[in-house]
Write a protein that binds this DNA or RNA. Structure first.
Length: 503
RNA sequence: GGCGCCGUACCCAAGUGGCUAAGGGAGCAGUCUGCAAAACUGCGAUGCGGCGGUUCGAACCCGCCCGGCGCCUCCA
């Protein structure tokens, strides 16, 4: 039984979708005026896992994630760069797909754009005007918050309380300071669409109401986004949607916590944010081998790191945190490699593998059912890793090993983890510094990695080393091992005298 | 001024009224090994920011205090 923490009630609630067996969810995507940062990555990972787990649990999920592609910030950026605003949005939509692809985020079922829903948006504004929930001032249309009795329900604030500390210059034309724009009349040179109120563009909040209703219906199951969207964005969405339809809007509201840097919110004004692209560049030097693989490794480390903290908690982003995630993953992939080896016919551990895997399936489900508790789910993976390692020490047959590996792959897929074919051992112990001598050293490792040895060459070296060890020429054996290590190849000797290697 | 969050071992991080406070990383010691590496075993919070209170019983509930943060304005 899945329980979800609902921001609307502040409690964990049993999740029961409107239509049994199906889930309709909407997540606020990005405003495409700049590159995505780690905060976007966290949100993307969180709702990716929510979606994956719902599907794993047997629900048919319709997942809508929008692009805000018309907005004041986009106009501002376009003016700064002297480019058409469409060029800005196109650029950053491309960047978004590039980043999300690298991160391994499954695309949403529908990815609507505000600019492609003008008819729906205008229609919704008209309904609100007709119902007296909105009013027109020159070319603008505002939503009248005092006409919606439950305003503040989501963010748990009262209109009166907010006025007290408001630091905004009050627009004289508004009837209430918290009234917000549904439609903004265009000044010259601004993007504009024709409307009954003159040329203009939608306000920020109305697009999400219009698009979610179009693609999911007037009432749907889950609405999500970052915690910073609770107010005013989601509060306003609820107000205008409920005012328009008279029905319940989204039933469960999920919000992920912030990513912080050194205990502070990551923000552009503090200058302490990292883009997703920067993370990939910085971590390239952790890996050797083919560069296309490096992105997969970095994405897995990042995903593991972010999912190791509960989605509602604040999370401090740090290189050390990523390194710990890397170290742990290294242990998992070491086990996977051993499970795949063909050697070993013993099977004393076999009788214990099925109960172990069954128990794992249960506790994994319990953890995820408890408001998507990925840290506990991951802890159970770690426990399983340890248990399987022990059984491997006792002896597992081929089929038992296949079963064990299958469990890691199958349940790992729900979190988006453990899907790599090959893990590449790190050759750098620190992230690549952006400057200085250490940077050059790290670059040298990358170059060595790019001139990676072929499997055949490595196998030949291993044969030489095996020969040397048989002759008890350990100096030579160690020299071969060190030479390979220089090039990012790690050797592990097995008890029977043969060796396994990994990059 | 209003609303809210966080503080668990060297680090990360679950747990939110009741068995010995999960799990991982790092460290140390040991087993194995020609040596390594990996794996395994052992060690590691008499205590969960502090002080009171409620309770048979609290890291978990209540109060106060200390420290840190967020929202109320664009923000994942």
């Amino acid at each position: 039984m899945l329980k979800i923490h609902n921001t609307l009630t502040g409690r964990k609630e049993l999740f029961e979708p409107l239509v049994s067996g199906t889930v309709r969810m909407y997540v606020c995507g990005v405003t495409v005026y700049d590159e995505c940062h780690i905060g976007h990555a966290r949100s993307a990972f969180v709702f990716d896992v929510v979606r994956r787990y719902l599907e794993h649990s047997g629900f048919s999920v319709t997942f809508v994630k929008n692009f805000t592609d018309v907005d004041d910030k986009i106009i501002k950026r376009a003016n700064e760069l002297g480019k058409p605003w469409q060029e800005i949005t196109a650029t950053y939509i491309d960047a978004y797909y590039r980043d999300m692809g690298r991160l391994g985020i499954k695309p949403a079922t529908v990815e609507p754009k505000a600019t492609e829903h003008m008819a729906e948006i205008i229609g919704l504004v008209q309904v609100l005007l007709t119902k007296g929930a909105a009013y027109q001032v020159n070319g603008d249309v505002y939503f009248q918050v005092e006409r919606y009795g439950s305003y503040g329900r989501l963010s748990k604030r009262k209109l009166d309380d907010m006025q007290a500390g408001a630091r905004v210059e009050v627009d004289e034309r508004k009837r209430h300071p918290m009234d917000f724009a549904l439609w903004k009349g265009a000044k010259s040179g601004e993007p504009a669409w024709p409307s009954p109120w003159g040329p203009g563009r939608p306000g920020w909040h109305i697009e999400c109401s219009a698009m979610s209703m179009k693609h999911l219906g007037e009432t749907f199951d889950i609405h999500g986004g970052g915690a910073d969207l609770i107010f005013p964005h989601h509060e306003n969405e609820i107000a205008q949607s409920c005012a328009a339809t008279g029905k319940e809007f989204a039933r469960y509201w999920l919000h992920n916590g912030f990513v912080q840097i050194n205990q502070e919110k990551m923000s552009k004004s503090l200058g302490n944010f990292f883009t997703i692209r920067e993370i990939f560049e910085k971590w390239r030097g952790h890996w050797s081998g083919e560069s296309f693989q490096n992105d997969l490794l970095t994405a897995e480390v990042l995903r593991y790191f972010l999912l190791a903290t509960h989605y509602r908690s604040p999370l401090d982003f740090s290189d050390i945190g990523l390194e710990e995630a890397r170290n742990t993953l290294n242990g998992f992939y070491g086990l996977f490699q051993r499970l795949e080896e063909s050697a070993g016919k013993e099977e004393q551990g076999d009788v214990r593998i099925q109960p172990l895997l069954e128990r794992f399936g249960d506790v994994f489900g319990q953890a995820m059912d408890d408001d998507f508790n990925t840290p506990v789910a991951i802890a159970e993976f770690q426990r399983l890793r340890s248990e399987v390692n022990k059984l491997l020490g006792i002896g597992l047959s081929r089929s038992a090993r296949v079963d064990a590996l299958g469990a890691f792959r199958r349940f790992g897929e729900v979190l988006g983890l453990f899907q790599l074919k090959k893990w590449q051992f790190n050759v750098c112990l620190k992230p690549v510094p952006m400057t200085g001598e250490a940077h050059l050293r790290a670059e040298a490792v990358i170059v060595r990695g790019s001139q990676a040895l072929t499997d055949e060459e490595i196998e030949r070296q291993l044969a030489d080393r095996l020969e040397a060890r048989k002759r008890k020429d350990f100096a030579k054996a160690d020299a071969i091992r060190e030479a390979l290590e220089e090039r990012g190849i790690i050797i592990e000797d097995r008890p029977d005298g043969t060796s396994r290697w990994k990059r």
